[in-house]
Simulated scan of single mutants.
Amino acid sequence: MAETTTERVLVTGGASGIGAAIVEQQRSLGRDVVVIDKQPGGIQADLADAAQVADALDEALAGGPIHRLVNNVGYIRVAALEELEIEDALRTYEINVVAAMRCAQALLPGMREAGFGRIVNIASRAALGKAGRSAYSGSKAGIIGVTRTWALELGQHGITVNAVSPGPIRTAMFDAANPAGDPRTQQIIDAIPVKRVGEPADIAGAVGFLLDEAGFITGQNLNVCGGMTIGAAPL
């Protein structure tokens, strides 16, 4: 099977949080996981910088073709529309959408040659709309649109493309913004049908499924949100 020769994985933003859980899950399968992140722990690059991204991808591919890609890196600045700095908006799109395009373009030749590829883009429930997140929600809606388009273009080459949209996930960023014991934090938990905040491993499990078991699933967005999206997203 093609999978026996396609054991390298690239995870952007894999140094911490959800990305680190994805890296751990993939390494548990014995895969060679390459991380590109601004933080230490892999190939260091600012994914908003085209030249740094190009150099990082050259370094990643020096070890051979990569047939599984997780575009996980994300950037967010919370601001109401009238307070939004356009430079922040441009950086948001550069990291959340354009970096994914750059990574996919670099890996595509190897995927096409193998007749096998798996791309998973990390989106967000914010794509449905969330106050204070004009740039972020727009970028995440954009990555879902990109996912659907790539699925149409690349399916003929044995490449599937899907998105995962996390709900509230317990990361350092979430805990900082939502302290334990705060009534507002409890309100968030009460609004989740399964009555708990998600863990990074919950997202990693969904991503792992799409990287391995989903050869007939493409162009889809999987909400991993404990049921919060019920009633908010279309069937």
Rank of each mutant, 00 (worst) to 15 (best):
G41M: 10
V97E: 10
A114F: 01
A106D: 07
L81Y: 12
A100M: 13
L10Y: 04
G132T: 07
L61R: 07
G129D: 06
G64W: 03
I18W: 07
A21V: 08
V34P: 00
A79D: 13
A100Q: 10
A50F: 05
S124N: 09
G115I: 11
E83H: 15
F116D: 07
P40I: 06
I66G: 02
E83D: 15
P40A: 06
I86A: 13
E113I: 03
E83M: 14
A50S: 12
Q39E: 12
F116T: 06
A45I: 01
R125H: 01
D58V: 13
A20L: 15
A127H: 08
V35R: 04
G17E: 05
I22D: 00
I86H: 12
R27C: 08
G13Q: 03
A51T: 10
V120F: 10
L47N: 03
N71G: 12
Q105G: 08
I43Y: 02
S28C: 06
L57G: 02
G14R: 03
G42P: 00
A127S: 11
T12K: 08
G13M: 05
A131T: 13
A100F: 09
A20K: 11
P40E: 05
S16G: 07
A54N: 12
V78T: 13
Q105I: 14
R77M: 12
E83L: 14
I36R: 01
I22C: 03
A123N: 08
E87G: 11
L107H: 06
A131K: 11
N121R: 07
G19H: 01
N121Q: 09
G30N: 05
E7M: 09
Q25Y: 11
A106V: 03
E59T: 15
R112T: 11
G19Y: 00
P109C: 05
D55W: 04
N71V: 10
V34F: 00
N121K: 04
G129I: 10
Q26C: 11
A127V: 07
R77T: 14
G74P: 01
A60I: 07
V73R: 00
V35T: 14
E113T: 14
I119N: 06
G129T: 09
